[in-house]
Amino acid sequence: MASLPVSTTINSDDVEYLCHADESLLDVLRDRLGLMGAKEGCGTGDCGACSVIMDGRVVCSCLVLGAEAEGRNIETIEGMADGNTLHPLQQKFIEHAALQCGICTPGFLMAAKALLDTNPDPSEEEIRFWLAGNLCRCTGYDKIVRAVADAAIVMREERA
């Protein structure tokens, strides 16, 4: 099968790659670019473990074709921290013990970032419905919701 050349932006860097027409963005990230932070939990868009942000919207990278990234702006978990400074969401997830096994964590962080980038002061209900596309089997979501709410406070203070 012929490969397609793709030019895109990933975590602010210009990236070029070749991929097959039917290859998912998740497979491109993991297998071609070595960005393993996005996880495949289902491959059918049901678990959110592969969530990345594309042009400001959270998407399941398993449901996006690698070729569709052409000209887009992609954010992945690998680009969330600023060097050694964690993003407030990352810091709060650790502080609140909002992860146990941690396999869902990159996806949750991406989804929560997309939420707080557009809604800096979400209610508990808004957090719960926004994150409903991300499955976590360990925590019962309690500490995740608290971590997101707490990170929102920090981010509002940083902006003020």
Partner: peptide, 21 residues
């Protein structure tokens, strides 16, 4: 007490290596 877990940073930065990684 409730200190931060030692594998926390790896797991929030996508560096933790799971079975398929």
């Amino acid at each position: 007490t409730r200190p931060l877990r030692p594998d926390g940073v790896d797991k929030v930065t996508g560096r933790a290596r799971y079975g398929a990684d």
